[in-house]
Design a protein around this nucleic acid. Structure first.
Lengths: 214, 214
DNA sequence: TGTACATCAGTGAACGCGCGTTCACTGATGTAC
DNA sequence: TGTACATCAGTGAACGCGCGTTCACTGATGTAC
């Protein structure tokens, strides 16, 4: 039990919030979940955080800056999820690769608010360089995984790593955005999106001559 | 030259607009282009159409109804583009199929506002059944094209049509949404998205044993 | 250990603004006879 | 062909509301000595 800076529910907080940045992020995610990236306002986020409407200006220049920070953190979490699923290619590269694909879909399903902020909020990368960098780091996991798979091929039949990584990213992203997302824009299909992705990857691998060598 | 109901620029229009529905759609598209689906308001669309703020209520229940109508028309145009590219499988199914893929990307590039309204406006399909139907009609073009390709395979090696169509849709959509879109959210890659898609489709076809039989 | 001071991170009142929506109205159009 | 009338598709004024933003302020915290 803590005496100072009690942050539990129902606790008295003093004049200073103590963790307003995090509270704003959380509020933004809740609002995006409920109403999409369009339907969240600076003022409402402040209210949800239990703070005056002027307080967020101590932390963010404006609404878009907060939205971009949400997206950046989303990319960081995304990278973490992907890295954990890939797990350095263990126990073997094919198993790990399919886990990576499932992790992509699981993120879209589990975190539709982050997903929308990252991919559908219309944030221009040019205005938020951090965002592009964070996105690139997440993509790097996927690219490294492709590189590891490609290394199992004889050198004369190796496709370009970047091409393969972009193919897998596009495929995963398409399935995630259309069929796996955890919000009202999901389209219903008569099979689990995870199975759809796995089947597509297997066909694609066959096309590359990349069989799980069992 | 027409004397009545002159709709050309600079023409005098009377008390009645004559074509407000279309004008509102056009205004909405312009605003979505500039600021994304989030940044368009009923009032601003009315202003752009040169009409009082109350006028749109004669045609649409609210902002979302207008947005949904934009999306529906987008699906109709999309269907038309895809059907034209596929062209009934002429001159041959492989050529026509790649034209179909390019048409998907071309739509995302040429009509980012429609694309955003259709796929990223967060409209729930349950609230707008017309939208789902229009989307299904567009998808049907792609499914029929896949069916035609599958028929070129010996019957014992034919994949399920729906699965293949969903794979191709996901792949095309992923590339369109990430790399081919015509707005600020496009990610830069060192190759034309059309080439990326064509390469992916060829690998996928190889995986199915579907070679362009030349 | 205490005190003075700088800095930080909030408050709350105020403002202008544009949006969504309603309302009684009115000009334009179409149609019955 | 003309007239009366119903309907349609606009107007414009009005309203309440919440947002974004600024401002002088103040309570809390950290630190130098």
């Amino acid at each position: 039990m803590s005496w100072h800076r009690d942050t539990g529910p129902g606790s008295r907080r003093g004049y200073h919030h103590g963790n307003l940045r995090e509270a704003l992020i959380k509020a933004a995610l809740d609002l995006i979940s409920q109403k999409g990236p369009a339907g969240f306002t600076f003022a409402e986020a402040a209210r949800a955080a239990g703070v005056s409407a002027a307080a967020p200006y101590r932390h963010y220049r404006d609404r878009d800056a907060l939205l971009a920070d949400v997206a950046r953190r989303g990319y960081d979490l995304f990278e973490e999820s992907l890295a954990k699923a890939w797990n350095g290619g263990k126990p073997d590269v094919h198993t790990a690769f399919h886990a990576l694909g499932r992790a992509y879909l699981a993120f879209a399903k589990r975190e539709p608010a982050y997903f929308a902020a990252m991919f559908e909020a219309g944030l221009a990368f040019d205005a938020f360089p951090d965002l592009r960098d964070a996105g690139d780091r997440a993509f790097a996991i996927l690219r490294d995984a492709c590189a590891a798979l490609i290394e199992t091929l004889p050198s004369e039949r190796r496709p370009p790593v970047l091409m393969m990584a972009l193919h897998i990213w596009s495929l995963s992203h398409g399935i995630a955005a259309l069929f796996a997302r955890g919000d009202g824009a999901r389209r219903a299909i008569p099979m689990p999106p995870e199975d759809l992705l796995e089947a597509a990857v297997l066909v694609y691998f066959d096309g590359l001559g990349l069989r799980a060598g069992k």
